[in-house]
Simulated assay, not measured.
Amino acid sequence: MASELRSLASELRTALHRKQLDTAASYLSRAKHILLQQNALIPTSSTPPQLVSLAREILELGALTSIRREDASSFTRYYQQLQPFYDAEGHLETTGSTSGLDLSTSQRSKITGLYLLLLLSVGNTSQFHTVLEGLVVEASLKGHNVEDDSYIKYPVELERSLMEGSYDKAWRETKSERVPSEDFSLFSNVLVRTIRREIADCSERAYPSLPISNAKNLLFLNSEGAVVEFAQERDWTLHDGRIYFPTDPESAAADEEQPIGQPEKEIVLSSATIIENSIGYARQLETIV
């Protein structure tokens, strides 16, 4: 059984390298069936160290397969399945029972960094900090800094930028060479969409309208055509090169009380100013909440 699992793990790595995701999923199904037969999907004190490492490697490859299939729910399940294996291997290291234990294939920091990025992309900051605090404690016990690991540092710096309201800085980070691997870029794209929605929500509340040209940079979109498509998805009105946001009934009532003859304030701002004002508004909303 162990030799068959090793063979499946090798074939799984090859399929992932070649981006043959359906083939990888087939290998995963077979490997997990064998692990289930061996009662090795959850490690126990009686599980041989060699089998612990092999099962952990297969589950990690499963997690990466899920990411490349853009299946966040499946990735989360794999992440949760992996925690007992990481704990078991840590315990074996502590007790010196490392005979047969293979840590050279461990992708723990990468899987954990990806999970942090997923939490960030869906706005689950409480769980993000819970996981991070555990990593900080563990690293300090080993005399390390958690941000020495590039896989962990990347989501931590992104979260820091978002908490500061520096959406433009966070966006630049997702496009920079500091993205640790191609797998991270998948969740980075999800995060960019989340940031874009946040800015759009704030803009709707902050402005009656914006020029399409300004909205392109504000929303980190590549063309005015992409702005038009995004505007249509949100039911924004387009007219004479401007986006008109839905009118809030309370705001409309206030506008009706405006003195007759007072000119409507024209908002034509530079891209940088628009971003700054949107971020400021986001901070105000956060304070109110």
Rank of each mutant, 00 (worst) to 15 (best):
D248N: 15
A253I: 05
R234L: 12
D240A: 13
E233I: 04
I243N: 05
D183I: 04
I212K: 04
G241E: 09
R197F: 07
L221T: 10
P246K: 11
A254E: 14
E198Q: 14
N214F: 05
S209K: 10
F187H: 12
Y207L: 15
E224R: 11
A226N: 09
G225N: 15
N189D: 08
H239I: 04
G225K: 12
I199A: 04
P208D: 14
L218D: 08
F245L: 02
P211G: 07
R196Q: 15
R242Y: 09
D240E: 15
P246V: 13
S209I: 02
N214D: 13
S176W: 10
S203R: 01
A206L: 15
R196H: 05
P246Y: 11
I195Q: 11
C202V: 07
T247M: 14
N217C: 06
P211R: 14
I195S: 04
A253C: 09
C202Y: 10
R234W: 08
A252C: 06
P246A: 06
K216S: 04
I199T: 07
F245K: 11
E177A: 14
E198V: 05
A254Y: 06
A200E: 10
E233Y: 02
I195G: 00
G241Y: 04
S185D: 07
A254C: 02
W236S: 06
E233T: 09
D240Y: 03
D235H: 10
E229C: 07
N214G: 15
P208L: 13
S209M: 08
S176Q: 05
Y244A: 04
L218G: 12
A226F: 06
S203W: 02
F187L: 07
E177P: 00
D248Q: 13
N214W: 02
C202G: 07
G225P: 00
T247F: 03
S251G: 07
D235I: 01
T194V: 00
I195T: 05
P208N: 09
F184Q: 09
A231F: 05
R234Y: 02
A215T: 11
R193P: 00
E224W: 00
E229S: 14
G225Y: 05
R193M: 13
F187M: 07
E182P: 01
A252L: 15
E224C: 12
E250S: 12
S181L: 04
N214Q: 15
Y207A: 09
R205S: 10
R197Y: 11
S251Y: 09
L218N: 04
I199H: 01
N222R: 14
R205Q: 15
V228S: 14
S188Y: 00
R242A: 08
R197N: 06
E229D: 14
R197W: 01
P180L: 12
S223W: 06
E177I: 14
F220E: 09
V190I: 02
T194C: 01
H239E: 13
F220A: 11
N214A: 15
I212C: 11
N189L: 08
P180N: 05
T194K: 13
P211S: 08
A200Q: 05
E233H: 12
E233K: 15
P208I: 12
T194Q: 10
S181Q: 10
R242G: 01
E250K: 13
I212W: 03
G241L: 05
R197T: 14
